[in-house]
Design a protein around this nucleic acid. Sequence first.
DNA 1: AAGGAGTTCAACCGCCGGTAC
DNA 2: TGTACCGGCGGTTGAACTCCT
Length: 334
Amino acid sequence: MGRAPCCDKANVKKGPWSPEEDAKLKEYIEKQGTGGNWIALPQKAGLKRCGKSCRLRWLNYLRPNIKHGEFSDDEDRIICSLYANIGSRWSIIAAQLPGRTDNDIKNYWNTKLKKKLMGMINPIAQRKPQQAAHVSSLLQPTSLPSSPSTPLSSSPSSFACNNSNYYNLARSFTEPISFSATPLSNSSFTTSASSMLQPQETFVGPMQNYQVKDSLIMFGGEASCSSSDGSCNNQMSHVNEGYEYGGGANNNTEQMGLQNYLYNGVEEDRRLMVSSGEAAHGVLNGWTEKQNGLWPGDNSLDYGLEEIKQLISTDSCNSFLFDENKSGEKAMYY
DNA sequence: AAGGAGTTCAACCGCCGGTAC
DNA sequence: TGTACCGGCGGTTGAACTCCT
């Protein structure tokens, strides 16, 4: 038996919302709340709309503190980093960007940021290595601290993309990203998200709630709302209640839930992002394969999501390799 | 000025997981 | 335990807008 439709499709209005409808919905929710039942809401509010449509309109457009307009470089960085870590989990990404909705971020990624990223990567990738080194160096603000010096393998075939990959991606933009972090083990990898963080570095900015402590990644402090429901009770918000998610064993099932999410849900990312060992080969392989397609003759921007994720990580590795302070390591790669 | 191509973004669709019964 | 309902999510669509020729 099929699922009953959430509303009477024949009697609901579709398409763009009129100002009158917006006003009705806003007024009703501000006075009555959603009542925990979106399906019943339109009838109560006097709207000929599907409950889902009302919910979407409220969350993506009408609710207070929605931020519209240009995304900042910080926001770009956060989106890129999180995308590379967890993929298209837009609601989770949105939870880290107060005022932004998952729909906004998704649209922004698909229409602008992906191209922006490709625009940064392709000019590099399509050049010969010597040229690429120059272009890449232009993308690196020299005022930022240099990457931690996790040793690279002496063999090109076992080149290691270390934990600096996100850091270097971030450095491709113009402003510092914001973490406070304490040292991670050189050899261990805790969660994929932790690969964003660098030992003994402290930054300031919009992600104060995001910390690494004793190799555990922690989320704390004031909640940031995503579009999930406007009330911050999404997956990430659980951590605002004091949970910690990390590499160690624990008995908290909810904690384990997200930990598993971070571990299993991004298994593939982890293969790409971890600091050493086999996973690094994945990065190298990914880059090598892409390299074959990107140098002269390939001007395609038509990447799949996994490819883009690889590009994000490999570009970061690439940036690391091209770091002007690490010319010797450049030579190792080529 | 016109119209075709490309871009943006609000909104829809359908699936999934949680939960009440 | 099974079923139905609902909220939430990510992918996709298409109208409106902008750019280009």
